[in-house]
């Protein structure tokens, strides 16, 4: 809490959190995005950057004009595309006392990064991604996509993401072309521009031969391709692939993985959930290993293998899950 601390030192009589909240809305520091603020609050920024922000806050408090220098270190801060903090999701079920699908997970993903969510079935991966795509609402916690909060601004969040789900989710009675056009129009893209983009994407994914094929007549691989094109049509900065390769044959799966890599090269942020280790090892820049709604370990693969002294990701995964299950069992035993 670097900024909060410096504020406290400068103005001990004032409550720093209230000031921070107010400052988010002051004109002088409009240049600072929401992500930058979180960066400071979490204490990730360098000393110089902190000092600069502190100075700006002091200016703002005294209502002095304070402009951010163009070449300031803040401008060089990496912008967080996805920012998740203490995300909780509890399903209200009839049978049990309610089922906690997510128990306060936090992670960040940057542009040009593939962020892997790794975990067994029921770990909470899909729930987390459904919250990011605003299909579900979190019970508590925050999730911010490209500066837009999933609760406060769901429509903007949906505009900033492309979602490719586990099941290929293709309309049976629509052709590939119609489907992509429909979603493009829903994103508000003008028809001429939409057709231009569609031509490019259909060419790139070699889909011109299935343009007029109905969804019911497509193979699973074709369907997933259409799904990907549909997710890319509005050129979103964030792409979410939720177990996108499950059920695909090896050729189709490889094609999906290649696409993910291409998307990263374009500087987009990709969230890639999977339970296939090889895919994750090949693609992801950073991973989070999840089980029972919590993140067991988070970081780059090298960092994780370094910490846990295990070269093989699969072994590491097994170890972590086994440990977590054992802890869970102990907890249950204690309760009993």
């Amino acid at each position: 809490m670097a900024v909060a601390t410096s504020l406290k030192l400068l103005q001990p009589e004032r409550n720093p959190t209230d000031d921070l909240r107010n400052l988010f809305h002051t004109a002088q520091i409009r240049e600072l995005t929401f992500d930058h603020w979180h960066c400071f609050i979490d204490g990730d920024a360098t000393k110089n950057q902190t000092n600069l922000v502190s100075r700006m806050i002091v200016c703002a408090l005294h209502d002095r004009t304070c402009k951010l220098p163009l070449n300031s270190p803040i401008a060089r801060l990496p912008k967080r595309m996805i920012h998740v903090r203490a995300l909780n999701k509890r399903y209200n079920e009839l049978q049990t006392d309610g089922f906690t699908a997510l128990a306060g997970i936090s992670f960040d993903a940057m542009p040009g990064q593939i962020y892997g969510l790794l975990g067994p079935n029921g770990a909470g991966k899909t729930t987390a991604l459904r919250i990011l795509s605003t299909v579900l609402k979190p019970t508590s916690g925050t999730a911010v996509v490209n500066g837009y909060d999933v609760i406060d601004d769901p429509e903007q969040v949906r505009r900033n993401i492309g979602f490719v789900s586990t099941n290929t989710a293709i309309y049976d009675r629509m052709t590939a072309w119609e489907m992509v056009q429909y979603f493009g129009q829903l994103y508000g893209i003008e028809l001429a521009e939409l057709h231009r983009r569609m031509e490019v994407l259909f060419e790139r994914f070699q889909m011109n031969n299935i343009r007029d094929v109905l969804g019911s007549k497509m193979s699973t691989g074709m369907k997933q391709k259409v799904s990907i094109v549909r997710a890319l049509i509005h050129d979103p900065p964030v792409l979410i692939f939720d177990e996108a390769t499950s059920g695909l044959d090896i050729l189709a799966a490889r094609e999906v993985l290649n696409t993910v890599e291409q998307v990263r090269e374009q500087g987009k942020c990709v969230i890639f959930s999977s339970h296939i280790m090889t895919e994750v090892q090949r693609l992801c820049d950073r991973i989070a290993i999840m089980n029972r709604g919590t993140i067991l370990a988070e970081g780059t693969i090298e960092k994780l293998t370094g910490i846990y002294k295990e070269d093989d990701l699969e072994e590491l995964f097994f170890q972590l899950i086994a440990k977590s299950e054992a802890t869970q069992r102990d907890l249950v035993a204690q309760q009993v």
């Binding site: 299909v135 949906r158 290929t168 989710a169 293709i170 979603f183 994103y187």
Partner: peptide
């Protein structure tokens, strides 16, 4: 049943 509902819900349409 066909799984297309989720896709539609994650589109900008309210």
């Amino acid at each position: 049943e066909r799984g297309t509902f989720e896709t539609l819900l994650s589109s900008p349409a309210a």
